[in-house]
């Protein structure tokens, strides 16, 4: 019996060591980024997928169970997950990860957020006082967050610290060289006017110097209305618009309507990992987004 118990203890020790770390991420982009750095040394989980609007997630039981076991949490922050992350953190009652704790990384704290509202009033829709939280669509931001993740992983699991730092250095080098190629390629898009459903593509457009002329939502978080859409139609008649873009989890109806009325192409950009078949990692995300946008400008 004693031998059996000893065996059980050994077995659990071995089992728990197979994955040294449990990382909980709020979005697929942070899961992908963490995996680029941790490789097989961590079990990385994403609370959401590309078909979901991350802002409206419920504090599901599965999320409480997952965050309870996490050694580290990576989320976008800037109030993107405010409806559910504080609640699951509170319900899970974990000693390792808590609001304000060292092992909770909010990406928005390490980059310069854009579109910070000057007026905080819900009459303007579901505004984010700390700026636009959809910051992963600018690869420079991803590199900054990647460095923070690499440092945190090295701190928690110092034994593999050099491994994480090397993986990040490799990722960073590859990303930097890709960025140059993408920026060259996307020169054709520079200065183009576009319409999006929600301001969740702003960082991509900001990076590539594309101008957002309007959104299909009259105000953040308020679905498109026919009155607002007809106003947008008037704008399309006055200005040259390159394309209308929306995310995989958003309704296609308003974009399709405006596209039909104005003759401007509507495209679904992947938005995050898994947003379409071609987008399996962060490199695919930028590559595919730029390809899709360029396709609309080829005549």
């Amino acid at each position: 019996m004693k031998k059996f118990i000893l065996f059980l203890i050994m077995a659990t020790l071995v089992a728990t060591q197979a994955f040294a770390l449990n990382v909980f991420t709020c979005e697929p982009e942070w899961k992908s980024l963490t995996e680029e750095i941790s490789k097989d040394k961590a079990d990385v989980y994403s609370a959401t997928n590309a078909t979901q609007d991350v802002h409206y997630i419920q504090a599901k039981p599965s999320l409480i169970a997952k965050i309870r076991k996490a050694d580290m949490v990576v989320c976008s922050g800037a109030d993107l997950e405010i409806g559910w992350l504080p609640l699951i953190l509170r319900k899970a009652g974990s000693a390792k990860v808590q609001e304000g704790g060292a092992n909770l990384i909010y990406a928005a704290q390490y980059v310069q957020t854009i579109e910070k509202p000057t007026r905080i009033d819900r009459a303007d829709g579901d505004v984010h006082p700390n700026g636009n939280p959809h910051l992963h669509l600018n690869p420079y931001n991803v590199l900054k967050v990647g460095k923070v993740i690499a440092d945190k992983l090295s701190e928690i699991d110092s034994e593999n610290g050099a491994f994480y730092q090397k993986n990040f250095a490799d990722f960073s080098a590859k990303m930097n060289s890709q960025i140059k190629t993408w920026e060259q390629k996307a020169l054709a898009l520079k200065g183009a006017n576009v319409i999006t459903n929600h301001k969740n593509m702003s960082y991509l457009f900001d990076w590539l110097k594309i101008k957002t002329i309007g959104t299909l939502e009259p105000k953040p978080g308020i679905p498109a209305t026919s009155k607002h859409l007809s106003e947008l139609k008037d704008i399309t008649e006055q200005k040259r618009i390159a394309f209308i873009a929306y995310a995989p989890f958003e309704s296609s109806k308003p974009a399709e309507w405006l596209s039909k009325e104005s003759g401007i192409k509507a495209i679904v950009l992947p938005y995050t990992i898994g947003g379409n078949k071609e987008t399996n990692n962060l490199f695919d995300l930028y590559q595919n987004s730029i390809d899709l946008m360029l396709n609309t400008t080829d005549k």
Partner: peptide
């Protein structure tokens, strides 16, 4: 400017 990744800028 091209590789501003060295130091994270807190908001």
């Amino acid at each position: 400017e091209n590789n501003q990744i060295q130091t994270p800028i807190p908001t």
